[in-house]
Design a binder for these strands. Structure first.
Length: 576
DNA sequence: ATAGGGTTAG
């Protein structure tokens, strides 16, 4: 029954055939792996690698870069380190592609030290630009800027070639106005690279200028780039949006529509955030159409941006509809909808939503507490707000920042609890910022406390000497207290400091047209009718302010409660 | 075939 042994030459042939098949098999696996990684299916990529390993197929130098990239993107240092062992076992460690992939993997997993060890232990990596590039980018992305710069210096001292990708890794490390002049020196490197990388460096510089606080320089560079790509447009639009220059954003968007580049979700995010800031709901609706047409309707970033836009424009019904329709709401979705209800005086709904969010198991962060706390203060839910600030620290282990303290000072202040507000400020562990003292000053205005107002004012202008709003606020407090000497003193102060109040203005959209109202101006064609309507509304609100006679009237008052502040702010804008 | 990089909501 035993088989005769095969002749030796057959065995060798079989073995070499098997070897060849195995190499071929590895190639097949690699191809599949590449496809998965290219599509961003990193999880699947990793399981394919595991399958490959179990099948006894030896991975090669072409395999590792793909798998390492998957680990990097999923931020999995443990499987990453395991792969490192496989690399050593299969003798691929000196392969430049594998080395850089390993370095990058360690950096993306926040293990810059391991990446550095790898670099130091492989003498040949000191001769590879790509290794320096990976390490520089890794340091910068982990905010280890000085290490990144040191690496760049070492690279130049070693006489290594610096290329565009070195710059792409290095430039994001330049944060702060002192680096603004750096753009020019980047151009001095005059490195040769393909047009697309050239453009990427431009995009990167543009973003750097914005982050260093100069949208002007960014715009100059933008205008200098002859063939702008999608990312160039996006970087400029986001730059304006992040600096609150909403009208610039909308102008640029119109310009972009005339160019050959079509917008993508990133573009729309910037546009929508600007629409939210200036209440441009008609542009927002237009963008929503474009999103649907472009097939981006399911992008969660865009859904959140849309909810925010509608909520801030006052269209809570539409905002809520999109919110309810979202299959997976994240923390930002909840934050924007809570903030939306809060800013429109519907604090009760905001609070309900916050509790619902907690109930659904979402871990809150500082930002969502800001939105729920400000909702409480706008709706007069003082005790509820105080409960939240306590819970924030004790139940969720979040350290309140100045932005939370200013909400609570506002909360206590509006309720007339000025003494407690003051005590809270004194108990703060960090230095109070302008908004904290500003909130106290605002509360002093409501409750006519001149003495405390003077103290708050003194503190707030130390921190924000050019914020004109605070001078106006104190001047109004003096004027209500008939302290003319005080009013005069503030006026002199403002003149000395050359502070001039820009006239207030607002936009009101009506039937698809945007109307501009400037304080004191009666230039609108329907000024007379508008004032007449405002007076009627104001009378109505005053009448409703009388003691309640019956339930019916109270209900009416409730339903109009939100209107009061709207009417008042309109009056402010229309009346000098 | 394979590495290193640019834009993103509150």
């Amino acid at each position: 029954m035993t088989r005769p042994p095969l002749p030796l030459h057959t065995t060798t042939r079989l073995l070499s055939h098997l070897q060849a098949t195995r190499t071929y098999a590895a190639t097949l696996w690699n191809t599949q792996l590449r496809e998965l990684v290219r599509k961003g299916l990193f999880q699947q990529g990793l399981s394919l690698y595991r399958q490959m390993f179990r099948s006894g197929i030896s991975p090669n130098a072409f395999t590792f870069p793909f798998v390492l990239k998957s680990c990097a993107n999923l931020s999995l240092p443990v499987p990453g380190a395991q792969l490192h062992c496989h690399v050593v076992k299969t003798g691929c460690e000196s392969e430049p592609f594998v080395q850089t992939a390993l370095t990058s993997m360690y950096c993306k997993c926040c293990r810059t030290n391991d990446a550095r060890t790898l670099f130091d232990e492989n003498p040949e990596s000191r001769r590879l630009t790509v290794c320096y590039n990976a390490l520089i980018a890794g340091y910068v992305q982990n905010s280890l800027f000085s290490d990144g710069f040191a690496m760049f210096r070492a690279m130049r001292l070693a006489g290594m070639e610096v290329n565009a990708i070195t710059m792409l890794g290095l430039i994001p490390g330049f944060v702060g106005p002192m680096y603004l002049g750096f753009g020019i020196s980047v151009h001095c490197y005059n490195v040769k690279y393909g047009l697309d990388t050239d453009l990427a460096v431009g995009n990167c510089l543009l973003t750097m200028y914005v982050r260093c606080g100069s949208v002007e320089l960014a715009r100059k560079l933008f205008d200098d780039i002859p063939e702008k790509g999608l990312i160039t447009w996006n970087a400029m639009i986001s730059g304006y949006a992040q600096n609150g220059l909403a009208t610039h954003v909308l102008d640029l968007y119109r310009e972009m529509e005339l160019s050959a580049i079509s917008p993508d979700p990133t573009t729309f995010v910037g546009i929508l955030s600007s629409c939210a800031n200036i209440g441009a709901q008609n542009v927002g609706r237009e963008v929503e159409q474009k999103i649907e047409c472009g097939g981006f309707g399911f992008n969660p970033f865009l859904k959140n941006a849309l909810i925010n836009m509608y909520a801030r424009c006052g269209n809570l019904v539409r905002a809520r509809a999109i919110f309810d329709d979202m299959p997976e709401k994240n923390l930002v979705s909840w934050t924007v909808i809570i903030g939306g209800y809060g800013t429109h005086g519907q604090g009760d709904i905001a609070v309900e939503l916050f509790d619902e969010m907690i109930g659904s198991g979402i871990q809150p962060d500082g930002a969502v507490f800001v939105s729920v706390l400000s909702a409480c203060s706008h709706a007069g839910l003082t005790d509820k707000g105080l409960d939240y600030i306590t819970a924030m620290e004790w139940n969720y282990g979040l350290q309140p920042g100045p932005e939370h303290y200013s909400c609570v000072v506002d909360l206590l202040g509006r309720a007339g609890r000025l003494k407690e507000a003051m005590e809270l400020i004194e108990s703060m562990t960090m230095k109070p910022d302008g908004a904290v003292w500003g909130a106290l000053l605002g509360a002093c205005k409501i409750h006519r406390n001149v003495e405390l107002a003077e103290l708050a004012f003194e503190r707030v202008i130390e921190l924000e000497p050019t914020n004109i709003g605070y001078y106006v606020l104190l001047s109004n407090i003096y004027s209500e207290a008939e302290n003319l000497e005080g009013v005069l003193r503030i006026r002199v102060m403002m003149r000395e400091r050359k502070l001039k109040k820009d006239p207030g203005y607002s936009y009101v959209e009506y039937r698809g047209r945007t109307h501009l109202f400037v304080a004191g101006s009666r230039s609108h064609a329907q000024t007379e009718e508008i004032y007449a309507m405002l007076n009627r509304l104001e009378d109505l609100v005053k009448k409703l302010d009388m003691p309640d006679k019956n339930d019916q009237e109270r209900k009416m008052k409730d339903s109009l409660a939100g209107w009061e502040c709207t009417v008042k702010s309109w009056r402010l804008h229309l009346h000098s």
